[in-house]
């Protein structure tokens, strides 16, 4: 059942890709270019970030203080600010383009400069990350050993900004992203690491991993 859903979602996204119009693809991240970008990141201001969050109506999809009200959108609360900053840059450049939802984020990031992005990142960074309290306990699948270096089993962000926090995201969202990495529709990963990791995962494994992180 879920497999069919995944296939449908995949087909569907392919179709959406075909209809999208982002024009030129920006260059992929290398560890060198990413190190440069980190150096150039302005210091974020939480208060300005809160103001921007209200002005851009982020809460419509990402919820109050970054806790998403639906499975479609990721929660941003408690996320590694560097990841948020990068995500916003990737939406603006068009590198993060999976489907038409990306076009919404692309439109919203067009008016943002780097300072705005850093401010928003700082604001979400200080919020409390959501935890799924009512989910049935799922144990970590063996294949997850490969993930935990950058995405600790606690669900928090990886050490030294190695990976974003995955805890508390919806299963639906996590599977969607894994699929996007797997099929190279999301190419925002530095050095193509997530793409090659996701390649190795079966649908069942993706599902198990997503279920585990969702409940953290």
């Amino acid at each position: 059942m879920l497999k069919i859903l995944c296939v449908l979602v995949t087909l569907w996204s392919t179709y959406l890709m075909a209809e999208s119009r982002t024009g030129q693809t920006p260059p992929l991240w290398t560890s060198e270019s990413w190190a440069e970008a980190i150096k150039a990141m302005p210091k974020g201001d939480v208060q300005r970030g809160e103001h921007l969050d209200a002005k851009a109506y982020c809460a419509t999809c990402h919820g109050d203080k970054g806790v998403a009200p639906s499975r479609n959108t990721p929660s941003l609360a408690g996320q590694d600010p560097l990841y948020i900053y990068k995500a916003l840059m990737d939406f603006k450049s068009g590198l993060w383009h999976i489907d038409n939802k990306s076009l919404g984020m692309h439109a919203l990031t067009l008016p943002m400069n780097k300072q705005d992005m850093a401010d928003l990142a700082a604001f979400y960074g200080v919020q409390v990350r959501p935890h799924q309290t009512n989910a049935a306990a799922v144990s970590a699948p063996p294949v997850m050993a490969a993930c935990t270096t950058c995405h600790p089993a606690s669900g928090d962000a990886g050490p030294a900004h190695s990976g974003p926090a995955l805890g508390g995201q919806s299963v639906y969202y996590l599977v969607r992203q894994l699929n996007a990495f797997k099929h190279h529709r999301r190419n925002t990963d530095v050095g193509g690491l997530m793409g090659s990791m996701a390649q190795m995962l079966s649908d069942k494994q993706q599902e198990a991993i997503a279920k585990f992180y969702a409940q953290q």
Partner: peptide, 18 residues
């Protein structure tokens, strides 16, 4: 004036058409 709204509604208009 809200520049985010202006931009977002463009994407929404295209999305509506699709």
């Amino acid at each position: 004036e809200n520049t985010f709204m202006r931009h977002f509604l463009v994407a929404a208009a295209d999305n509506w058409q699709r």
